[in-house]
Design a protein around this nucleic acid. Structure first.
Length: 290
DNA sequence: ATGCCTGAAGGGTTCAGA
């Protein structure tokens, strides 16, 4: 298998995103794409996008429901062993469409939309932690060959939010959530965007309100977590901020990761991307109501 | 004013999102 471009994007409604989503596929031409928050039942997703995607050479795995949640994987480098959901995952109270897995180009992909958690200590927060435990148990079967892509709804560190003080007492930054993420990564999964840009200000989500994107007041909660054999092949890893601009954008930007050819191929020495200056982190306060 | 936008469902308003 040659070089592979993988991407993950919380589209915040596939139906609303069609005018942005199809041009984005044509512009970035990813080989494997994980979507979250499709907000469509499987038949509705395929009715809406099936022909457009198959025309672009993509096989599709969907696991959705009307109104909320919904995940998908697109691949034009093969798709086998599709599994919807996670074994033993808790519901709220019923199971929700928050994970789908497939093997593409010899890599096990899991597209995840982790529960939000709403408020620390709430039932939804406990659900989030239990769901993360079931994700870890699923990945633990073969972490080396796995890439977990998606909206983790956790900022791994204080460097992943625009102002840590603004998030005190909020979900996404609490110790139990970060611990659950660390336990998942302890299986051997590497955060390939942070590994590539250890000192940069990198966000993937910006609230729609109050010009948060324009001021770059966001969070990094959409992650690509890769086992070592895949992480070692990363040539580029970046956030496609262009997709967050303009009208009709999702509140999340895609994350794009390019992998070099697998070691059993032969494309010669790897050239690292040029280094960029470190950007000083902002310490702006959350805009307040008048 | 934990809802300054956005999306969805269902109905002329509410809930959820992070």
């Amino acid at each position: 298998m040659g070089s592979v471009r993988i991407a993950t994007w919380n589209v915040n409604s596939a139906k609303q995103r069609v005018p942005r989503l199809l041009p984005w596929l044509d512009e970035r031409r990813p080989d494997v794409v994980c979507f979250q928050e499709t907000k469509l039942a499987d038949d509705a997703f395929l009715d809406l996008l099936g022909n457009e995607l198959s025309g672009r050479g993509y096989a599709v795995a969907v696991h959705g429901e009307a109104t909320w949640n919904g995940v998908a994987i697109l691949s034009r480098v093969g798709m086998d062993d599709v599994v919807k959901g996670l074994d033993g995952a808790p519901g709220f109270p019923h199971p929700e469409s928050r994970a789908v897995s497939a093997t593409c180009a010899g890599i096990r992909f899991v597209s995840v939309y982790v529960p939000n958690g709403r408020a620390p200590g709430s039932e939804h927060y406990e659900y989030k932690l239990a769901w993360l435990a079931s994700l870890r148990a699923t990945v633990a079967a073969s972490p080396e060959a796995t890439v977990v892509c998606g909206d983790m709804n956790i900022a791994p560190t204080d460097d992943d939010v625009f102002d840590p003080d603004a998030y005190i007492g909020q979900t996404h930054v609490t110790r139990p959530e970060r611990h659950a993420l660390a336990e998942l990564q302890a299986l051997g999964l590497r955060d390939v965007v942070r590994d590539r840009w250890p000192n940069e200000r990198v966000f993937t989500y910006w609230d729609y309100r109050a010009g948060m994107f324009h001021q770059d007041l966001g969070m990094r909660i959409d992650l690509v977590l890769a086992g070592a054999p895949v992480a070692d092949r990363v040539r580029a890893a970046w956030v496609d901020r262009h997709a967050r601009k303009g009208t009709g954008a999702s509140d999340h930007a895609p994350v794009i990761v390019d992998l070099d050819e697998a070691p059993d191929g032969d494309i010669g020495p790897v050239v690292p991307p040029p280094s960029r200056p470190v950007v000083k982190r902002g310490a702006k306060k959350l805009p307040q109501a008048p």
